[in-house]
């Protein structure tokens, strides 16, 4: 499975439209049972984790059979104003497109495409590398 963003630097401004394409590969059409597409943010670091799904849809077996696996499929959604991507020493806030593919034999394949959500594209560097002086 692969997901590709419409922007090479993978950086989007808050409130902007996110557009991406996905395609299933190396799995036969007959094996597919379902697919969940989410645009979400999650935290990672030393402490407890947090996660929020911003945009979600599910394709059942019949819908996947109808779509087939030859063509690229599109995802599009309006991104929110916050929370913005953040990278600190103890915590990171990451945005990503996550695809969960359910295949025969109760197997699950997950693919993620990270991207950055920033306040304005000119301020990418300061948004992404902000660290306290002690770090």
């Amino acid at each position: 499975m692969n997901v590709s963003l419409c922007r090479e630097d993978g950086t989007y401004e808050a409130g902007e439209q996110l557009k991406a394409k996905w395609r299933i590969s190396r799995v036969s059409l007959e094996q597919l049972q379902g697919l969940e597409v989410s645009v979400l943010w999650h935290t990672e670091g030393k402490g407890d984790e947090d996660l929020h799904v911003h945009h979600f849809y599910r394709l059942g077996e019949a819908e996947l059979q109808e779509l087939g696996i030859d063509d690229l499929q599109a995802i599009s959604c309006k991104l929110p104003l916050s929370p913005l991507s953040y990278h600190g020493h103890l915590i990171h806030l990451r945005w990503c497109i996550r695809l969960r593919l359910f295949v025969e034999g109760r197997r699950e394949i997950v693919a993620e495409q990270p991207f950055h959500l920033v306040s304005c594209r000119g301020g990418i560097a300061s948004n992404l590398t902000h660290r306290s002086p002690s770090q």
Binding site: D9, H42, E44, K46, D48, E49, H92, R94, L128
Partner: peptide, 13 residues
């Protein structure tokens, strides 16, 4: 893309 490497010792993993 910058800033996308995950720490292998973060809680998630």
């Amino acid at each position: 893309m910058n800033g996308l490497v995950s720490n292998p010792f973060c809680t998630r993993f």
